[in-house]
Amino acid sequence: MAVVLGVLVVPGPAAAQKPPATILVVGDSLSAEYGLKRGSGWVALLEKQLASDRKTAKVVNASVSGDTTSGGRSRLAPLLAQHKPATVVIELGGNDALRGLPLDMTEKNLLAMTQAAKQAGARVLLVGMQVPPNYGGAYAASFSGLFSKVAKTEKVALVPFLLKGIADSDDSAANFQADRIHPNEQSQARMLANVLPELKKLIP
């Protein structure tokens, strides 16, 4: 007890500790540890890095192998309601390109996901992807450009290319699993390094 200006003050219970902010990652196989041992993917490494940096954040990995932007869009609302994230990382679009889905549909889905996350009070990090040159120069440019277009329209953070330094390196084959699509375990730290600088700016 303490007396302040003649008034008896009885300390109340200690204030409840604020729960850590949640980072929700909604992605495809590149974030879902496809072909990797559990705990070795870039999202798992992110959680370890934040703990090492003493960042009070909880990472929820809601990534699904094979998912498209349409799938992510349909899954997002219940994920937002369940986890109430402070930050949402959207890593989708690669499977849209692999399946030859219309680019305008991919763009609309990414816009809708970004807007939904913002309306739920979350900050958004959009993670971009690129396709190999054999898809054609015009298509490749349009596909990679739609991520920056959505980010600019919605004024959200952007990682232009998740596989920078991996898919575009001189010896890129050594960075992938046997399918030449999914990065191997040794490449996961580089993927995290591509994401982390922008993501750290969004952590409350």
Rank of each mutant, 00 (worst) to 15 (best):
G71T: 05
P20T: 02
L8N: 11
A44E: 06
Q82C: 13
G27E: 12
E33K: 14
L46N: 02
D170P: 02
S63W: 08
K18H: 06
N194W: 07
K200S: 08
Q119N: 11
T56A: 11
A138L: 10
P183G: 13
M1H: 11
R99F: 03
L199Q: 02
I203S: 05
K118H: 03
Q130I: 15
V60L: 12
L24M: 12
L46W: 01
Q115I: 00
A167S: 14
S74F: 01
Y139W: 14
A2D: 14
Q188I: 05
N95M: 10
L50K: 02
D171E: 11
M191P: 07
P183C: 02
S65P: 13
S187Y: 05
A122L: 07
G39S: 03
G121Y: 12
V159G: 11
Q82G: 06
K55P: 06
L45N: 05
E33N: 11
G145R: 04
S148I: 15
F176S: 05
E154P: 11
S63N: 08
P197G: 00
I203P: 04
H83W: 10
V156M: 10
L162S: 11
K201D: 11
V64G: 14
A16G: 08
T114Y: 04
Q130D: 13
K201V: 07
L50Q: 00
V150L: 07
G72I: 06
K200C: 03
G6P: 05
T68H: 12
S144V: 09
L125S: 04
G145H: 01
V59R: 07
A112K: 02
A15R: 11
A167I: 14
D53R: 13
